[in-house]
Computed example of a mutant assay.
Amino acid sequence: MYYFLSVTPNYPNSYWLEYYRASSIESVVFLENKKISEPTDTLIFNINKNINIERFKKYDYLMTDAVPILSERFAEILNNLAPHDVQLITTHVFNRSEYIGDYYLPIYLKLIDCINWETSIYDNEFDIFKRIDLLPNSLGNNKIVKAKGYELGLPIVQEDIFSKCKKMNGCSFFKSPYINPLFDV
């Protein structure tokens, strides 16, 4: 069974993080599904809002204006179960100038041809999938991947990642097929 990893529908808008763009790495490389050189300076994400820091720290999957980042707990599970499928880059998270902690930016290294194009529904007008069906056994031994043809979309995980991470705060898993909540299918 395969699952799509997504942010939880009730993720607080006030917890969106901003990537500090003066960093040595342009955020577009985080989406390329290729291993990158470790940055020479620390990647920084900032909130700049009046939030409850202790409540914020309970989230394991955090949304940013670049890519989602992970708590140490979530990153450790991915590193143990899928060390060859994901590169984890350490980041620092701040609220204004207050250091909150280290988080991890995942770069998904495996790009797999796993979409069943015959049964999936793609809307050309909006350039978006309404429904994505995955081919059975298409991930092989890979635990977490991105799909060819859906490179900028949600990561896809195997059952063991799902079972270890399904209770992580801030994320949701959708069993394949994925039905885009923006459309009636």
Rank of each mutant, 00 (worst) to 15 (best):
M1E: 13
F4H: 10
L5E: 08
L5W: 13
N10L: 03
W16N: 11
A22F: 13
S23G: 10
I25V: 15
E26Y: 15
V28F: 08
L31C: 12
N33S: 10
N33F: 00
S37V: 06
L43V: 13
N46F: 10
K49D: 05
N50L: 10
N52K: 04
E54Y: 08
K58Y: 02
K58W: 07
D60M: 02
M63V: 13
P68L: 02
A75F: 00
N79K: 14
N80Q: 13
A82D: 05
T91L: 03
V93N: 03
V93F: 05
D102R: 01
Y104F: 15
L105M: 10
P106A: 00
I112C: 08
D113V: 03
N116W: 04
S120T: 09
I121D: 08
Y122F: 15
N124R: 11
N124P: 10
F126W: 10
F129T: 00
I132N: 04
D133H: 15
D133V: 03
L134T: 09
N141F: 05
K143A: 11
K143P: 04
A147V: 01
E151M: 13
L152Y: 11
L152P: 02
L152G: 15
G153M: 03
G153P: 10
G153R: 02
I156R: 01
Q158F: 09
S163N: 13
S163G: 00
C165Q: 05
K167L: 05
M168V: 03
M168Y: 14
K175M: 09
P177V: 04
N180R: 12
